Simulated scan of single mutants.
Amino acid sequence: MTCLRPLLLAAALGLAGCTMTASPVPTTAATPIQEAPMAKRAPGDATPPMAVFRAFGTEPFWNVNVEGDTLTFTTPDDQAGIAMQGTRRTRGDTLELSGTHGGKPFVLEVSPGECSDGMSDNVYALSARFRFGDMSYAGCGEAAK
């Protein structure tokens, strides 16, 4: 037993010089897995079907934000907007979201094509048309940034 004392003492001294650091993120089964946000796309990638994008226009000013199958239509007079649930389909290179809200049909069509908003020197990669009830709007679109 006297031979073990120097070994135990050496082991204790050796461990005394070590420091242990805790892992910054616990690695338990309860840790939720974070999914990447669906809003991001590669720069210049405007190919349908896009999960998140916006369509907009001037004369009159209008905006439709799209996330998945939900459209939010806003105007300067209604900045809170109207949220509408649509059905998504592609026809060739055109993305279409359509449905009915408050008894009025709506259709948003977005397709690749150079587009100018008519008020700035900005050129967008998408052209857009939006019909809601008896109103029709034309404008541009862009993938979410």
Rank of each mutant, 00 (worst) to 15 (best):
N63Q: 06
A22G: 09
F56M: 15
P24E: 07
M20N: 07
A11S: 05
C18V: 12
F130E: 09
D134V: 10
L126C: 04
A138N: 11
W62N: 03
T47R: 15
A83W: 07
T74W: 00
G44N: 06
T47K: 15
L4Q: 12
M119K: 09
G99P: 10
L108N: 09
F56I: 13
T70A: 13
Y137E: 06
M20Y: 07
C18I: 07
R5H: 09
G44C: 03
N122Q: 03
V110D: 01
H101V: 08
T87A: 10
A143F: 00
E35M: 13
S120G: 01
W62A: 01
R41C: 06
V107Y: 00
P32N: 05
K104N: 08
G92I: 03
T87E: 13
S116K: 13
L7T: 13
A22E: 11
F106M: 07
P60D: 04
A80Y: 02
D121E: 07
A46D: 14
A42L: 08
T87I: 09
S98I: 04
A80Q: 13
D93M: 02
L4E: 12
S127M: 05
A12F: 00
S127V: 04
P32D: 04
K145T: 06
S23N: 10
P48N: 14
D117C: 02
S136G: 09
T87W: 02
E96G: 02
E109D: 06
P37D: 14
A30R: 15
E59R: 10
M50Q: 15
T28S: 15
P43M: 03
G133K: 11
T27R: 15
G57R: 11
E35Q: 15
N63M: 03
N122H: 00
K145Q: 10
T90Q: 14
E59Y: 02
A29D: 14
F132P: 14
S111L: 01
A143T: 03
N65D: 10
L7W: 12
A143Q: 08
F56S: 15
E67W: 06
T19R: 14
C140E: 04
A138I: 02
D121S: 06
Q85P: 06
R91E: 15
S23Y: 03
T74L: 01
V64N: 03
M1F: 07
G133Y: 07
M38G: 15
L7H: 14
A16G: 08
G68N: 14
L7C: 15
